[in-house]
Amino acid sequence: MHQNEVFDGDVIFMRTAGQQKVKTKRTFIPRSEKMLDDLKKISGIDRSGMLATVTGFPEQIFESWEYRKGLSLPFGKKDIDNIIIAGLGGSAISGDIIQSLLLDEADVPIWVCREYGIPAWASERTLFIALSYSGNTEETLSAFVEAARRKCRIVGVSSGGKLRDFCKIAGATHVAIRPNLQPRAATAYLLFPTLGILDAAGIWSAEDAVIKAVDETSSIRGLIRMETPEAENPAKQIARRIYGRIPQIYGHGIYAPIARRWRGQFNENSKVVARDDVLPECNHNDIVGWSANPEKTRDFAVILLRDRDNEAPAMSVRLDYLFEMMTSVAGDVIEVDSAGEGKLARMMHLMYLGDFASNYLAVLRGVDPSPVDIIIGLKKKVGELGLVDRLQDELKNIC
Rank of each mutant, 00 (worst) to 15 (best):
D355S: 11
P193T: 02
T194W: 09
I110K: 04
I177S: 06
R149C: 06
A259W: 00
G253Y: 02
K296N: 11
I93H: 02
G160Q: 09
R31W: 09
W65V: 11
D373N: 05
V210L: 06
Y321F: 12
G251K: 03
K23T: 12
K168I: 11
K379T: 05
A92K: 05
E146Q: 13
A17F: 15
K151Y: 03
E232A: 15
R225I: 14
I375K: 03
G377P: 04
N359M: 08
G44Q: 12
P109N: 09
G89R: 07
F28L: 14
I303P: 01
S358F: 01
N310I: 12
T24K: 14
V54R: 05
R365C: 10
K34T: 13
A170H: 03
R241A: 02
T217Q: 07
N136D: 13
D286G: 08
I110G: 07
P280C: 06
A186K: 07
T24M: 12
I80Y: 01
D276E: 14
M348Q: 04
L101Y: 06
S358V: 05
K162R: 15
Q182M: 00
M351T: 10
G222D: 13
N82L: 11
D79P: 05
I93D: 02
P30N: 01
F192Q: 07
R318I: 01
F266R: 04
G117Y: 09
E324V: 13
D8Y: 15
P193A: 09
L304V: 08
G196D: 00
H252S: 15
D8N: 15
D81Y: 01
C152N: 07
D199G: 10
N285P: 02
P313T: 03
K151S: 06
A86G: 11
F166L: 09
G156W: 02
W204E: 08
Q3A: 15
Y189P: 07
A201M: 07
F144T: 08
E33G: 11
G264S: 15
V108G: 07
H284G: 00
S291Y: 05
L319P: 04
R298I: 12
P371G: 02
K162N: 11
K296T: 14
I93K: 04
S142E: 04
M14C: 14
S338Q: 04
A314C: 14
R184K: 04
L344N: 05
P183H: 05
L305G: 01
P234R: 04
R263Y: 05
R225C: 15
L361G: 07
P58W: 03
W204M: 14
S123V: 08
N4M: 08
G196I: 03
A122Q: 00
N359E: 01
L353V: 15
I97R: 01
A209K: 09
H252K: 05
K343Y: 10
I374E: 02
D208N: 15
E227V: 09
T137S: 10
I249K: 03
H252D: 10
K23Q: 09
A330F: 01
G70I: 13
F266T: 04
